[in-house]
Amino acid sequence: MGHLHTGSCLCGAAKFELDGEFKKFFLCHCSRCRKTSGSAHCANLFAPGATIKWLSGEDKLSYYHLEGSHFARTFCSVCGSNVPTDAKARSLVVVPAGCLDTDVDITAQAHIFTGSKGNWDEGLDKVPSFEGMPT
């Protein structure tokens, strides 16, 4: 496939290698993504036809699928970090952008499900920013 990426969870127990190209990059504001991330949105990359190889920690992975939906998450049972979900039935790997250790050559293409975003998720571009923890 020619596009090789590596990534890991926060504690480093789960490490992976993904061979495939990211075709979509969405920032999803749906209530499910907000709950699983604890933040305003999830930043998910979509790699149709990609293959994932777990280099370590596959035995530490937990999987959650919301019945009656396509919503699923794979996460490290040690640190709780979201890691890629291999949706084999859909021939798709969904990769949380934050778990990648390599750069990607695609930028976010859209904010999606903004109709259900949190009421506090407005005007965040106007909030002061700091390179580190403010004093």
Rank of each mutant, 00 (worst) to 15 (best):
L100V: 03
D101F: 05
L55S: 11
A108Q: 08
D103R: 05
V78W: 09
L66D: 06
A108L: 02
V104A: 00
F25K: 08
D19I: 00
C79W: 04
E67H: 07
E131I: 07
S116I: 01
A50Y: 02
Y64A: 05
A13Y: 03
A110Y: 04
A40D: 15
F25T: 08
D105Q: 12
A89G: 10
S81Y: 06
C76I: 13
E17C: 05
D103N: 12
L92E: 12
F46T: 00
V83L: 03
C30I: 02
F26I: 09
K126I: 02
V95F: 05
T36C: 06
C79A: 12
S129P: 04
G20Q: 01
I112G: 04
A89E: 14
V83K: 03
G118H: 13
S129Q: 10
S39K: 08
K15N: 10
E58V: 10
S37L: 09
V127E: 15
H65K: 15
G38M: 08
T6P: 04
G7N: 11
D86L: 03
G98C: 05
I52S: 03
H5T: 10
R34F: 01
S91V: 01
E122R: 08
V127Y: 12
C11S: 02
A108S: 09
V93T: 05
T107Q: 15
F75P: 03
P96W: 13
D86S: 11
V83M: 07
R32N: 04
A89K: 14
D103W: 06
S91F: 02
T107N: 13
A47G: 10
D59Y: 01
G7H: 05
I112T: 11
G57D: 10
P96F: 03
A40H: 15
D105Y: 05
I106T: 12
I112P: 06
G7T: 14
N82Y: 03
C42W: 09
G12Y: 12
F130E: 15
P128A: 09
P96A: 13
V93I: 07
V83F: 01
K24C: 06
H41L: 13
K24S: 11
L45Q: 08
M133W: 14
F26Q: 12
T102I: 00
T85Q: 07
G7D: 12
K88P: 00
L66A: 08
C30D: 06
L61A: 06
D59A: 13
